[in-house]
């Protein structure tokens, strides 16, 4: 490789890294501002009915139009997205903790490992929506029920990945060698295993968000989720079903699109963080 080529390559690499960081930054900023806007919006003012302008199509005054009670759909959507992010965050935290515990637990011995695998397979084999509804009902439904249900059902993929990864690391020769050097189990877990799985955990957490958000919206839409007075996207969509036949398309179109956009943003962040943490590109 000539010198200029080398320089060129370096420049491109730097560019890719900066680009990735930029994408992550922008996506994160959007999510953050949606979330923060929820605290700045006056909930009662936004959600009280205003019968002077009901069912108005999108305009400059009401970007997403208004509904049958004259509420501004943009504000309702924003609040809905805020709830989605909240549920997603909480669910990701619970699910990640469960996944890590199971992954670490499975490395104790083969019997425990088989038990953990069985539990993962069991939870993985029940249809997801059904499982969420069942768990939600078990927790008494409502806001609490949904959050717990979504949180308690999204750990299977990450748990599976962590179990496999920890197993692979534990049977590797450099771990055995580390014991030969007289290192303790704690030392090995801290210095060898944890740094090797942390990137998987981070990516796993981010990719859990879109799933949790979609599932919460789905079961709210089906009527098993959040109570009807919450401004959740799933509720908005199921309510607007009644009005779609009257031609009020904006009631479902914009909130649905916004939800899709939110989910795609998380996917985008996950993908780019993965790129950033991937050993191949991380070592450059």
């Amino acid at each position: 490789m000539t010198k200029t080529e080398e320089k060129h390559k370096k420049f491109l690499n730097l560019n890719l890294r900066t680009k990735t960081l930029l994408i992550i930054g922008i996506a994160f900023l959007i999510l953050f501002s949606v979330f923060v806007s929820n605290y700045l919006i006056d909930h009662t003012a936004v959600l009280t009915s205003n019968f002077y302008n009901i069912n108005q199509p999108p305009s400059f005054e009401h970007w997403f139009g208004t509904d049958w009670m004259g509420r501004d759909m943009f504000m309702r959507t924003l609040l809905g997205l805020g709830i989605s992010i909240g549920v997603g965050a909480f669910a990701s935290i619970i699910s990640t903790i469960i996944a890590i515990l199971l992954g670490v637990f499975s490395s104790v011995n083969t019997i425990v490992d088989e038990a953990v695998t069985a539990v993962i397979d069991l939870f993985g084999s029940i249809p997801h929506i059904l499982l969420i509804i069942l768990v939600s009902l078990a927790f008494g439904g409502g806001y609490y029920g949904v959050v717990m249900a979504v949180g308690l059902t999204h750990w299977t993929p990450l748990a599976r990945v962590l179990r496999a990864e920890i197993k692979k690391i534990n049977t590797s020769e450099y771990i055995k060698l580390s014991t030969e050097f007289g290192k303790s189990k704690m030392w090995i877990a801290k210095k060898h295993i944890f740094p090797l799985i942390i990137s998987q955990i981070i990516v796993g957490v981010i990719l859990m968000f879109p799933h949790a958000i979609m599932h919460e919206a789905s079961i709210s839409f089906l009527g098993f989720g959040l109570p009807a007075h919450e401004p959740a996207i799933g509720i908005i969509l199921s309510e607007s079903m009644k009005y779609l036949s009257m031609g009020y398309w904006w009631l479902a179109f914009y909130p649905g699109l916004a939800l899709l956009f939110l989910v795609l943003l998380f996917d985008l962040i996950g993908e780019n963080v993965h790129k950033l943490l991937d050993p191949q590109s991380a070592q450059e």
Partner: peptide, 28 residues
């Protein structure tokens, strides 16, 4: 403790943490 009988393998790459730089590998 440190095992006084040390094995050196035919394939050294398997005995090193891929995410550790060599100074860390050595000083372990």
């Amino acid at each position: 403790d440190f095992y006084p009988i040390q094995l050196i393998f035919q394939h050294p790459e398997k005995t090193m943490n891929p995410k550790w730089k060599m100074h860390k590998v050595l000083s372990e």
